[in-house]
């Protein structure tokens, strides 16, 4: 066992886990944050994508020691973070995915939504190519990706609108 100090979804946590456990296992089986999914356990599918200091990372390929001192955001933290910023409902990414029908089985989508979140943080008005590129590490077996693209574009529009309203 090894003790880790992690910051997950804004909470500072001390946790002990077997030394060979990945961040994915610690999140899922120690912290109960089961929104982060395991689809392959070897970095192929992207279902375990979390944000580490704002960048998408595969939790199944990270040891928790590697992310001590960094800010980890899982899907469970997305809506509360949006609320902390004074927003309503869920994060615009989550709302748009729901509105566009992008959530079929929903299993890959926590990872997809976090990759999309990182994209929009970096590039508020992404092109179709940029969306496809930045989601290419997240396999979705249900949608054929089209409704995901629609959702990301809608979220970008929604955020632009919110910014305009904020400026008014």
């Amino acid at each position: 066992m090894r003790a880790y100090r992690l910051e997950v979804n804004g909470d500072k946590i001390e946790i002990a886990a077997p030394e060979h456990w990945t961040l994915l296992e610690v999140l899922r089986y120690k912290l109960g944050l089961t929104g982060t999914k395991q689809g392959c356990d070897k970095g192929d599918c992207g279902a375990c994508t979390v944000l580490v200091d704002g960048e998408p990372e595969l939790a199944c390929l990270l040891l928790p020691g590697a992310v001590e001192g960094k800010k980890i955001l899982t899907i469970e933290g997305l809506a509360p973070a949006h609320r902390c910023r004074g927003g309503e409902g869920a994060d615009p990414i989550q709302e748009s995915f729901d509105e566009a029908g992008a959530l079929q089985c929903g299993f890959c989508q926590p990872g997809v939504m976090l990759s999309a979140r990182a994209l929009l943080n970096r590039e508020p008005h992404p092109s179709c190519e940029q969306i496809a590129d930045s989601l290419s590490g997240n396999l979705c077996r249900c949608t054929g990706y089209k409704q995901i693209y629609d959702a990301v574009e809608a979220a970008a529009d929604k955020e632009a609108e919110l910014k305009t309203q904020g400026a008014d």
Partner: peptide, 23 residues
């Protein structure tokens, strides 16, 4: 109508419990 799915927000927020999420 293009209504949202009844379980969409559960899936969007990570609340949806799949088999391996059961402890």
């Amino acid at each position: 109508q293009r209504n949202r799915k009844v379980d969409g927000m559960d899936k969007a927020t990570g609340c949806a419990i799949y088999a391996d999420d059961i402890q």
